[in-house]
Design a protein around this nucleic acid. Structure first.
Lengths: 225, 225
DNA sequence: ATTTTAAATTTTGTATACAATAAATTTAGT
DNA sequence: ACTAAATTTATTGTATACAAAATTTAAAAT
């Protein structure tokens, strides 16, 4: 049934499956993750489930309270802001390096991704834009040619994912997002490292702020602090 | 026997103990970590050991190759440089925020830590300087008043720890390290965010470079690439 | 003697069993 | 009827048992 037969460990597969459910919103922040229940759901024993939960806990997606079970991590507005701050800096760094190191093939790919975003915007398709926006950012991470930075940025991106989804429903956010992308592409193609960094940072910071506004106005997720 | 009786999980305690051994150099990069052996060593079953290894793997300190066992992560010079690059940026960010947000109590503590470093330098005691230097940096992370940034920076710091130890034996590195610290303290007390960031970044970048030099000249650790 | 193949051993990965702690329910007391 | 204590239930954490894969050792063939 699952699309990935995979050679790797069962526990890692399960980790990915749970992460997927968290990202999509099937398991929302604060939701209890019962080991036995998950084990049955995946038709395995508790052992690989526990190992998966530990992995997700290390990734920050799940919180394990000793002897009291695991829940999907609920991140307060305070920490969420802090995370966006760090994300902004990491993405700025990706941009700076990408502007200096991007290859021609990567330039092509970036322009194509940007074009795809434009199409999604014109079609007024937020779900599609969400996905393509992600690809656009991933291309920039990769173009930094720093594997480690790429990894770290991806990890934080995944961690913010459950919260991002809501945010792009916001009125007119897609339009301004796309415009910001245009500025970023321009700066990268001009090989302007610092300019790219500034624009990337601003792009992410705005996301963070919009998101904080959203949270402040609606008591949706257990937003403590 | 162990200093921490702890209420938490055995697996987490074991994780810390293994991390300690890695940091100190008892378990060097590339060394095989046999589950049964570790289990006996800690007088527990394999279960908590496996969970500890998974945690350490997520932290990047251990590499688990499916069905082929775990080893202490060996980081190539390439990735090590990339890690120092990111570390520089994170610490720069800590510095920037710390300069803006540091409290008076934290200022006092920072100056005290700096003073302690000076004493260790004058006493020509590298081990002591190593420890106090660590404290100095930790204070700056904390003074950023961003819990998340603090955490992330600490995690990367831990990850680099096994490699840092060698580096500070380098001739005259302690002296210049201390001088750089002086500049950083000055910038923080003057509440100069950007200046602090620049000096922090430079401070870490230099460490990284010195370290790369060291690796390049000696084929010590399995440095692939 | 070297290489290839096959058997044996070791070690990881998963399942199950048991122990300990926390949550829930029931019972007793005011 | 409400609170508090005690017992029961459920769930986590650890140990052990078993299965599958990889490594090592031994044997056979060129």
């Amino acid at each position: 049934m699952p699309s990935k037969p995979r050679t790797a460990k069962r526990s890692s597969q399960i980790s990915e499956l749970i992460e997927e459910r968290i990202a999509i919103g099937v398991y929302q922040p604060g939701r209890r993750l019962d080991e036995a229940e998950l084990a049955e759901s995946f038709a395995v024993s508790r052992t690989p489930v526990r190992e998966a939960l530990i992995q997700l806990s290390s990734a920050g997606l799940v919180e394990i309270r000793p002897r009291r079970g695991a829940i999907v991590a609920e991140i307060g507005t305070r920490q969420l802001c802090e995370m966006f701050e760090v994300m902004a800096e990491l993405e700025a760094m990706c941009g700076r390096l990408a502007a200096r190191r991007i290859t021609e093939a990567e330039q092509k790919a970036l322009q194509a991704a940007h074009q795809a975003c434009e199409n999604a915007r014109d079609a007024n398709n937020p779900d599609s834009y969400y996905r393509l926006n992600e690809q656009f950012h991933y291309l920039i991470y990769a173009a930094s040619h720093s594997n480690f930075l790429n990894e770290q940025t991806l990890i934080l991106h995944r961690r913010l994912k459950p919260y991002r989804r809501l945010q792009l429903r916001m009125r007119d956010r897609i339009n301004s997002s796309f415009d910001e992308h245009a500025g970023i592409v321009e700066a990268i193609l001009a090989q302007q490292g610092e300019l790219t960094a500034d624009r990337m940072r601003a792009h992410v910071v705005i996301q963070g702020q919009r998101f904080a506004d959203l949270l402040a106005s609606s008591p949706m997720l257990g937003n403590k602090s």
